[in-house]
Design a binder for these strands. Structure first.
Length: 489
RNA sequence: GCUCCCGUGGUGUAGACCGGUCAAGCAUUAGGGACUCUCAAUCCCUCGACGCGGGUUCAAAUCCCGCCGGGAGCACCA
């Protein structure tokens, strides 16, 4: 028989291959990558993709990961965000080896800008903004585009020294006015922003690099070998490649992943900021938000987020974010650790009558030995069950209070019948809490609040992610009162 | 309008470069069942996809063409 010859063949094998990311193309020597968030606020679930993906690859290849904070638009920089981003990354267990802040590097960008002007690969235009754009669309240069480099150098000095006001002069990188893609033709690289305060540099600089310029310079200076970015940057990549060509630099490998549509979530930094200010959100960690801080508060583990993004991969197709899938990963991580408690929402008090003393001994976890909870109850006592469970009970129906016993509901109170466990599959099982239970509010991601009672032993064991049976996984905080933040079912 | 990219079940992904082993794998979701105690976990079962139409070929999810659909960009934002 097969059983004798090869018993392992009969064994049902569940080899769930761990999903892994594809190899990076063109790896030669050390891999250097970067994450480039802009410090407008803390990171949200969408940002975590680039962080995780970069981290996965640099860890796999033993490479370096640089956190480059892109704060070249002072209008969109918040001082607190610099540290918040780092904290978010640490929570995600993303290991970055170096931090580069672009506002420290203005002089570097200026130097390269000058060199480009000398090479005749850029110009400072005084043309009317709209006119310039219109000409570009019809593949024509603004009249001053091809003036002698010396003129443009002089104008550049003028920009730096404050000779021009906002929008009066702009530094433009030449590409190809005949480029079939209008998005690639000559692009602005430095703008003047006077009377604007940068949180870090104050009013020291009035000429700000635009993203395409500073990114290209830094990607080279930092020695990046691979760049992972969203596909909304594809045209920016083409633009930046001109800089690499002009300077004769080696180009990194660019990989563009698709856009993620994240439904049912509030992610927009400006919106959140406004909401916090107006008091409609409690803070960046308000559980209605899609920030990492909020997910963390709800008990979503960083490992679940990591697995999710690895599963999603980095194809160029757009994807729809699935909370269900994220929750599934999270559940598999937290379930083995989540102590079980009874939480009765919309509690209804009921009297219990028994001819013998009753008590309940309840394991903290059904599959893992974590100890037991014990509630001595006596013969006449009260319990709470949810109003819905009460509504569903038919008169004289035999049902079970989980881990306590089987009862009959006589329309008024609960009569103890027996503790016959063989009935379990046949009768309704509901949960309950004893009379000395403690009030608890659970805050749901949709903004609603479920309040009720949770069994008293929560005070001893609670805290952290637990499972409220027949309710869901909840991150519990205890200080004076018991509060929970709902993760998922 | 112009330029570019992409289309495998509800969701994500494998397979596509190098046609056959793919009447399409995995995960998740949904439905059902098992389990001496959860609407959790575990185990089992079921439903569910190659956008459409041609072509090449003995053979196409895989190659070619057309169509349809989706997306990105065309900012002195990132």
């Amino acid at each position: 028989m097969l059983l004798d010859i090869a018993p392992e063949m009969l064994e049902k094998r569940k080899i769930v291959e761990k999903k892994v990311l594809p190899d990076l193309p063109d790896v030669q020597g050390k891999v250097v990558m970067r994450m480039a968030p802009s410090p407008s606020g803390p990171l949200h679930i969408g940002h975590s993709r680039m962080a995780i993906l970069n981290d996965e690859y640099t860890k796999r290849y033993g490479g370096r990961l640089i956190l480059r904070i892109e704060d070249t638009n002072p209008l969109n920089v918040e001082n607190y965000a610099y540290d918040m981003i780092k904290e978010d990354l640490e929570w995600l267990d993303v290991k970055f080896h170096e931090v580069v802040i672009q506002s420290d590097r203005f002089n570097v960008y200026y130097d390269y800008a000058r060199r480009l002007l000398e090479m005749g690969k850029a110009y400072v235009t005084l043309c009317d903004e709209k006119e310039w754009r219109k000409l570009k669309l019809s593949r024509k240069p603004c009249p001053d585009r091809d003036l002698d480099p010396s003129v443009h150098l002089e104008r550049w000095d003028g920009m730096l020294s404050g000779k021009y006001g906002n929008r009066e002069a702009v530094y433009v990188v030449k590409t190809d006015l005949n480029h079939p893609n209008p998005a690639i033709r000559d692009w602005a690289a430095f703008r003047i922003l006077r009377r604007v305060r940068h949180p870090r540099t104050g009013e020291k600089y009035i000429v700000y690099p635009l993203m395409n310029f500073s990114v290209a310079i830094d990607d080279h200076d930092l020695g990046l070998t691979h760049v992972l970015r969203g596909k909304d940057h594809i045209n920016n990549t083409y633009r930046q490649l001109y800089i690499f060509d002009y300077f004769g630099w080696k180009k990194p490998v660019y990989i563009h992943y698709g856009k993620v549509r994240i439904e049912n979530s509030i992610l927009k930094t400006s919106l959140i900021k406004k909401g916090i200010k107006e008091g409609s959100f409690t803070g960046w960690d308000d559980v209605r938000l899609g920030t990492l801080l909020a997910l963390r508060k709800r008990g979503i583990s960083p490992e679940a987020i990591r697995r999710y993004w690895i599963d999603a991969g980095l194809k160029e197709v757009d994807i729809v974010f699935s909370w269900e899938n994220l929750y599934a990963y999270n559940r598999s991580i937290i379930d083995p650790q989540a102590k079980r408690f009874f939480f009765v929402w919309e509690p209804v008090k009921l009297g219990v009558v028994s001819e013998t003393d009753l008590s309940a001994t309840i394991p903290l976890h059904p599959n893992v030995d974590m100890g037991k909870k014990f509630y001595p109850l006596g013969r006449n006592f009260n319990v709470y069950i949810t109003s819905q469970d009460l509504k569903d009970l038919r008169e004289n129906e035999i049902f079970r209070l989980k881990d306590l016993g089987n009862f009959r509901f006589n329309g008024k109170e609960l009569i103890f019948e027996n503790n016959d466990l063989s009935l379990i599959r046949k009768i309704r099982i509901i949960h309950w809490v004893p009379e000395n239970s403690v009030p608890c509010s659970v805050f749901m991601p949709d903004g609603s609040e479920k309040s009720g009672l949770v069994e008293p032993e929560i005070l001893k064991y609670g805290r952290g992610v637990v499972q409220f049976e027949r309710f869901g996984y909840v991150n519990v905080f205890i200080n004076g009162e018991v509060r929970g933040y709902f993760a998922h079912s």
